[in-house]
Computed example of a mutant assay.
Amino acid sequence: MKKVNPILIDTYKREHTYLRISLTERCNLRCTYCMPAEGIQLSPKSHIMSFDEIYTIAKTFVDHGVTKIRLTGGEPLVRKDAHIILEKLATLPVELALTTNAVNLERHIETLKNCHIKNINVSLDSLNAEKFKEITRRDYFDKVYNNILSLVAEGFNVKINAVLIKGFNDNEIIDFIELTKTLPVTVRFIEFMPFDGNKWDIKKMVSLKEILDITTNSFSKEKLIRLDDAKNDTSKNYKIKGYKGSFAIISSVTNPFCDSCNRLRLTANGHLKNCLFSAEESDLLTALRAGKSIDTIIEKAIRLKAKMRGGMDTLEKLKTPDLHSKNRSMITIGG
């Protein structure tokens, strides 16, 4: 097993072996929980990492012990050089994965195969075309759904990510689970989380307990099977007896998994975030362009990582706008 360099180990002895890299702040959807209605101020093109810079930074992390890299956005596949980035990163001794909205996925399936990328996460917050249009502000439901079916047919491991918002799509929980009856996919229900401009309200959140209550009201307890969670897994995993697929719940708010967190995030403009909830960032790109080592910056950022949710260790703190509104919009962090 690959040894993790001490610079990737924080003060709580958590080893960071998973790096999520945002390729772009741009997206071809406008999801309400991700992007403010008025849009965002994009970083100048010159501030965005080139494919060579992405590779160099990624290789540094892999050399120190990172074993998994997931590419995110915005929408990563809107980058014109996305195929080049995938091909370059595929040369590293690391598991490579992708999170996408699948709008243009059909153009990239062969590249994904050639790069040995098997694990694809697709964002899909409603199975209703009109609701999809309302939450994404775009009319691409059929395209996305058909691309999910294509991924399954091509043998990819597909996870469908659905952010639940009370009063909007929480009445679709059973519909999503029913997808797993015939499709070998994992549906992951994600608690609505606070970011700049997304009008987060804890009253809109659907908790792990509520999801399980809805599930057990529709299926007998004997049919609901609790699956083993993988090491460092962010989700609690379940399946319905006899169904091909499974479902999971990511409860970052009500049941955080911070004690086993092994994740780091690199934004499209080359800033390292040690926690999704934290507003603190460390600029790797400026140092890299100046020809300096980024190792000490990485080490310092990881040493400063808080024990839980960027220091918001209670729900009361999480509900304080002054704390979570200083963070970026989700689209500029990377999904």
Rank of each mutant, 00 (worst) to 15 (best):
I190K: 00
L304R: 11
I109E: 06
D10T: 03
N232C: 12
M308I: 14
L89Y: 07
M193D: 00
K159W: 01
I177C: 02
V158P: 09
M312I: 10
I211A: 05
A129C: 14
A301E: 05
I225D: 07
T99L: 03
L266N: 05
T136L: 03
I7M: 08
K131W: 08
F189K: 03
S218T: 13
R26A: 09
A230G: 10
T296D: 14
L304H: 09
F156C: 00
G242C: 11
S260Y: 14
M205L: 15
N101S: 00
L29H: 07
A306V: 08
K2H: 15
F132I: 07
S123C: 04
L105W: 11
C27D: 06
D313H: 06
K231S: 12
L323P: 00
D283V: 00
I7D: 04
K45P: 08
Y55P: 08
S207Y: 05
L98P: 01
K3G: 05
C258W: 10
R328F: 02
S282P: 09
K80H: 12
G197K: 05
R70K: 07
R263I: 02
C34Q: 05
R107L: 10
E222S: 12
Y18D: 01
D228T: 15
I148L: 07
M49I: 03
C27A: 09
D10F: 06
E299L: 12
C261G: 00
V4L: 04
K236S: 14
I148N: 00
Y140C: 04
L151W: 12
F277A: 06
L285F: 03
R188Y: 01
F61I: 09
P256R: 14
L42S: 12
I120E: 12
E130L: 15
D228Y: 13
I211L: 05
S126R: 10
N28G: 02
L42N: 13
R20A: 02
D259N: 15
A82R: 06
N237A: 12
T216D: 15
P184R: 13
I302P: 02
L92I: 05
I225T: 09
L42M: 13
D142N: 14
S50N: 11
D125C: 03
L77C: 03
S218N: 15
E191Y: 03
I57R: 00
K133Y: 05
L315M: 14
K319D: 13
D229A: 15
G155Q: 07
K319P: 05
K239W: 03
